[in-house]
Design a protein around this nucleic acid. Structure first.
Lengths: 244, 244
DNA sequence: TAGTCTCAATTGGTATGACCATCATACCGG
DNA sequence: CCGGTATGATGGTCATACCAATTGAGACTA
């Protein structure tokens, strides 16, 4: 019927215009956009509206604002999704973290398969290095978990698919808790290393099926160890809950 | 070694305080929080700062602002992730849309499998209804695509995993383009319906393996039809970047 | 009485104008 | 050549006013 006369809030129109220019590549990462006062003049709007628009873009991870330096375009696109998932898990009445485990059991075996197919020498080396770091940190939970994260992240990187990498990055934080449980399970790290090595060998041999199977075994073992740690040590299990 | 001295921007502190109350459950979905002017008074800050904080929370999908009605807490936590992925795909050097297809081929078969295992009568009915709508819209691309989206979303819903649902929601928008291609391929929609029906039957029989297989077949056919549509229409094919 | 209409109050959205905090740069003195 | 300092640019905050959309109460009409 009629054209929507005011296409929504004013600041949204400004967001759209700037977003478009970034998406189209007219504005690239590192570029600095005009001061707020200038933008306000260009858009024919007040500085308030421009500012709300820039604030929104900053929250989306498209730009960064800093006093004295101005507003610059950034390529930090995965940051937003990362915090979103983290938030979602927390706000979702944190019961049933199984949601995350389930998603992980869906994607990680396929990630391993793709990684085995596509990993180059450098990535294989990175995997080996991560495993060695875990070997050397079997009694140092923080370093072990960090190396463990790197291992899985390198696999995601080897898929050559940035979407998958972002997805993995976004759930890494949430896995720290579970990995602590594994670490506290007797023999948990050692059992994990068996599967890690199997994954490394599969990647070296480009054995897609072996990689998938190894990851499945790994996740099953992780799930079992985590459950065992919860059952066996009610004290540490209780320590998980609060953390407000 | 030393702590950062500055406590950060003022509006960030306000964001943190309100966010905490939402995450802790003190503020639940539907709750309405005080007017901006009141909040400004409570926080001992100006309305500007409060407003920037609320704007940030709105962008995160935690609250919704509307003139006259106030600011209410929402549970729409997937919205942020949705727009994030969409943005990432667009800003990320839009060549190689295969990234998305690849991710889809990883998760959708497993979604179908989980859905077949867990779908209740209402969800099966919703699947059937979506298929019927597609039957009735074989010559009306917009309605067909909408029903197609609903079909896949219902599958995700049936997994009972909100993370998976959010992930699918975030992908839906980006699939519109591909679905238009399918629709333009001769016999594409009809072939799609065959697989849709197979998925429905698998869900009815709780046949996990059949569901997974049907979805794999569906995606393979979709990929083929999309490619065929591109090959057949070089003009539109030129609009897509050659894959890396 | 029931329905609708009007209008004022509430509340988010925008506009100004000012001032502060921080950073970059150019300038100056050693 | 170096280091501190003044100056300007720029984002962050404040105060105030007005606009726009929504709500809800009270008046008006059928």
């Amino acid at each position: 019927m009629y054209q929507p006369v005011g296409r929504g809030k004013l600041f949204e129109q400004i967001v759209e215009q700037i977003r478009e220019r970034i998406v189209r590549g007219e504005l690239r990462a590192g570029d600095r956009l005009p001061p707020e006062r200038e933008l306000a003049l260009s858009f024919g709007a007040s500085r308030t509206a421009v500012r709300e628009a820039l604030k929104t873009l900053a929250q989306m991870g498209l730009v960064e604002m800093a006093p004295g330096r101005g507003t610059v375009v950034t390529d930090n696109t995965s940051h937003a999704m990362r915090s979103s998932i983290s938030l979602m898990m927390r706000v979702g009445r944190l019961r049933s973290p199984d949601y995350l485990v389930e998603l992980r059991e869906i994607i990680e075996p396929e990630i391993a398969a793709l990684a085995a197919k596509r990993a180059d020498a450098a990535e294989v080396a990175a995997l080996r290095e991560a495993i060695e770091r875990m070997d050397g940190a079997l009694h140092h939970s923080e370093a072990y978990i960090a190396a463990d994260n790197d291992f899985h992240r390198t696999l995601a990187l080897a898929t050559r698919n940035p979407l998958i990498l972002s997805l993995v990055d976004s759930i890494v934080d949430l896995l720290a808790e579970q990995r602590k449980l594994i670490f506290s399970a007797p023999g948990g790290p050692e059992r994990g290393q068996v599967n890690h090595r199997a994954l490394l060998e599969a990647a070296e041999r480009r054995d897609v099926e072996a990689a998938r199977a190894a990851m499945r075994a790994h996740l099953a073992q992780v799930r079992a160890d985590a459950q065992a740690a919860l059952d066996g040590t009610p004290a540490s299990a209780a320590a998980i809950q609060p953390k407000g």
